[in-house]
């Protein structure tokens, strides 16, 4: 299972790094959005520290929808999805492999986007890099696991690119709220409630378990 999972993830990472389809699009999207938001709010005002964390997660979730959307759409050409289904890889390994690949790509985009974000919005995170890494990893996992599931559900739709965000964002709200609250605490230098981390962890556990349970149903039949 682990070997199969890793093979699928590596395959996805390879094809993404070669074509850079989602990667380039997601990176340019984050920069454009960071630029646009700077007109909607005053980024250097003092209260900017209160909402820039929320803005960062909006940008990340837009990039996330773009990346998870590619997860299964990539397999549509030449009926690769059928080939994957026919291969001896188990559905849960296939699903988790795709999630892992999307997770690593999104995490990479997020880390790169942190640089323009800290420059444009004067955000220092108070040197709490470990906390920042934890909230990035936990939230990104939640976003990609739910996102990849919905990417599988919507892969055959005409309006796929539009349907996926509409369906997936409302589901992600608990995780995004927790991430926003923690990031806001880090940027503005105020304490945040540790309950948000518990919320994030339970979100990840519940939806990973659910996705594993349902992967067979969605992918095999």
């Amino acid at each position: 299972m682990i070997a199969q999972l890793w093979r699928i993830a590596r395959k996805d990472l390879h094809s993404e790094l070669r074509t850079k389809e989602a990667l380039n699009a997601a990176l340019s999207l984050t920069v454009v959005l960071l630029l646009l938001f700077s007109f909607a709010f005053d980024p250097v005002a003092d209260e900017g520290k209160q909402w820039s964390g929320g803005l960062l997660w909006l940008v990340y979730s837009f990039a996330g929808a773009l990346i998870v959307n590619r997860g299964f759409a990539r397999e549509l050409t030449n009926d690769c999805l059928e080939a994957l289904r026919a291969s001896p890889v188990s559905a849960s390994a296939l699903f988790m492999g795709k999630t892992l690949a999307a997770f690593l790509i999104l995490l990479g985009v997020e880390l790169i986007a942190l640089i323009p974000f800290s420059v444009f919005y004067d955000a220092g995170f108070g040197g709490h890099w470990a906390t920042l890494a934890a909230v990035l990893a936990l939230t990104t996992w939640g976003v990609t696991v739910v996102g990849t599931m919905f990417s599988a559900l919507t892969v055959n739709l005409h309006l796929r690119e539009l349907m996926l965000p509409v369906l997936v964002y409302p589901m992600l709200i608990p995780a995004l709220v927790a991430a926003i609250e923690i990031t806001r605490g880090l940027i503005s230098g105020t304490a945040f409630d540790p309950v948000w981390f518990r919320l994030l962890i339970s979100f990840d556990i519940i939806f990973t378990a659910l996705a594993l349970m349902l992967a067979e149903v969605v992918l095999v039949e």
Binding site: F150, L153, P174, D193, V195, L199, F207, L210, L214, V217
Partner: peptide
């Protein structure tokens, strides 16, 4: 039928989770 059944299960879990998380 299959995909919307999966979505309904996710939806119901998410609704409960959102309500519970809001109790905080």
């Amino acid at each position: 039928a299959k995909n919307s059944a999966v979505m309904a299960i996710f939806a119901f879990t998410s609704v409960i989770f959102t309500y519970k998380s809001n109790e905080w």
